[in-house]
């Protein structure tokens, strides 16, 4: 009762401790694999020791900012275009019949396979990266929009 009153009910929940044991087990396996030489990569202790130096470097935080901006931009452009195209294809049956085969042809091409063409086409590396992020987000959104439109009751 007292535990719950303090807003610490999760401490009394066995699921929390079991989850903690799972994560602790993961790090233990990682440390062990490093210790016995199965992993040439650093163990968890070395990674933890390297963290303070890393977070004190401005480039580390700039990489957060850069990646965040690219994901946001790529996703936002993909969302707007996929929504617009998806809605247009939902409204016009002719447009849907015309555009769908082309899109079905392009969709299974992995986003990364566009890398060489986008390096050739886009003037800067920034636009190239944003375009690849866009390619990764565009088709899943479009498919969901089309599926959502199909689910609308025709009544």
């Amino acid at each position: 009762m007292r535990v719950r009153a303090w807003g610490l009910a999760w401490l009394a929940n066995p699921a929390f401790w079991q989850g903690l044991a799972g994560i602790a087990g993961f790090f233990a396996v990682w440390a062990l694999a490093h210790r016995i030489g199965w992993l040439v990569v650093p163990g968890p202790a070395e990674v933890a020791a390297g963290l303070p130096r890393l977070v004190s470097e401005p480039t580390y935080w700039l990489s957060w900012l850069g990646s965040g901006q690219r994901v946001l931009a790529g996703f936002a452009i993909a969302a707007v275009l996929a929504l617009a195209l998806g809605l247009a294809m939902g409204v016009s049956r002719k447009l849907r019949l015309t555009a769908f085969p082309v899109l079905e042809f392009l969709r299974p091409i992995p986003p990364l396979a566009w890398l060489p063409l986008s390096i050739l086409f886009w003037p800067t590396s920034e636009t190239t990266m944003t375009f690849l992020t866009f390619m990764g987000a565009f088709f899943p959104i479009l498919i969901s929009v089309l599926a959502g439109i199909d689910r609308v009751d025709s009544r």
Partner: peptide
Amino acid sequence: RNVLFPVVEM
């Protein structure tokens, strides 16, 4: 589930 799912989600 309680033990492994957090690791999977991590």
